[in-house]
Design a protein around this nucleic acid. Structure first.
Length: 290
RNA sequence: GGCGCCUUGGCGGAGUGGUUACGCAGAGGUCUGCAAAACCUCGUACACCGGUUCAAUUCCGGUAGGCGCCU
């Protein structure tokens, strides 16, 4: 029987951090961040990374584990997250997995057997090919398309890389409680707008400028929301106002895709926001006492 | 008052006498080593009233609103 694990999921700006901090302090817990962007060093303001003050109050794991230009994958995350969970548990504390990157979370909770990693150079070459050419290669290799989306290049490339191997997953990890936060649409949009405003006031422009100069726009870390939108601005072809609008709109789009991802998970206990803490506490207490 | 031009789905913006672009926004969805990624699906709108026609958003006339010029 694996150790108890509390999980908090939800779309971006749904208020996950606040409730996670609260529960961690209340339950003597430590946070493990399941976020594909806060894992990167130097991306601080644009990723809404927990502040030094918050990190001093409650230990946060898996922040700042790779540089802005390095590769990072869901499979690596899974390994690190499992190590962190074991570590926190071994010290008698409660691990709390919190984040909005659905694939990372599911990889841990459902024990995905990530298939072999593709060769980087080969992937680059395959990327140059057309859909037709990729389909021809798949056919030549004798691979079955199955229900792979044939209009999605990445999936076709992945099929070639894995040579048609079947991925597997397990049932939900035992001793796991998943709490989901679902804000009302309009409220979320307001929260996102306010957050982007706060990022700008906190010096996002300067952060992006430094990073783009140091690593270049092609670096992985500069491709994220809150970063790539600045490229045109620095070229002088886009106003600050429009840059702001684009960041907000990308973020809203992200929230929507995250919602879609979590929606299909029937094991999540949903809470609308503002969160009713009494109900959450009740649920968590019952979980921990069983 | 006279003459001319314009009026397309939430916004922008094409176009056609019959098969009803497109972009953005919005909605729904897929998802196993790039996931803040990549990809898929969804909108019968043509100001109003008549007329011509087998058929009008598309042609003709009028009405309303907007824009411009003239007296």
């Amino acid at each position: 029987m694996p150790a108890k694990l509390l999980v908090i999921v939800g779309e971006t700006a749904s208020g996950k951090s606040a409730i996670a901090m609260r529960l961690a302090e209340q339950l003597n817990g430590e946070l493990i961040c399941a976020d594909s962007w806060t894992v990167r060093r130097e991306l601080n303001i644009g990723t809404a990374k927990p502040s030094p003050a918050e990190r001093a109050k409650v230990p946060h794991h898996l922040l700042d584990v790779v540089g802005p230009e390095e590769d990072f994958t869901a499979a690596v995350f899974k390994r690190l997250a499992n190590q962190a969970i074991a570590d926190v548990t071994s010290r008698g504390k409660l691990p709390i997995l919190v984040g909005g990157t659905g694939l990372y979370i599911d990889g841990v909770l459902y024990d995905y057997n990530f298939l072999p990693q593709g060769d980087r150079a080969a992937r680059g070459e395959l990327n140059e090919l057309s859909i037709e050419a990729l389909l021809a290669r798949i056919d030549a290799a004798g691979l079955e398309l199955g229900n792979v989306d044939i209009r999605n290049k990445r999936r076709l490339i992945r099929l070639l890389e894995t040579e048609g191997a079947e991925p597997t997953k397990q049932d939900l990890r035992q001793n796991t409680l998943i709490i989901g936060l679902q804000p009302e649409r309009e409220a979320l949009k307001e929260r996102i707008t306010a957050r982007v405003e706060a990022m700008l006031n906190a010096g996002l422009e300067e952060e992006v400028k430094l990073l783009s100069e140091r690593y270049g726009w092609a670096a992985e870390g500069l491709k994220g929301i809150g970063y790539q939108e600045w490229q045109d601005y620095f070229l002088g072809s886009q106003t600050l106002e429009l840059t702001r609008e684009r960041i907000i709109s990308s973020t809203v789009g992200l929230a929507k895709r995250q919602r879609t991802w979590f929606k299909r998970n029937k094991s999540i206990h949903w809470f609308s926001t503002p969160v009713n803490y009494t109900q959450v506490d009740e649920l968590v207490t019952t979980f921990l006492n069983n």
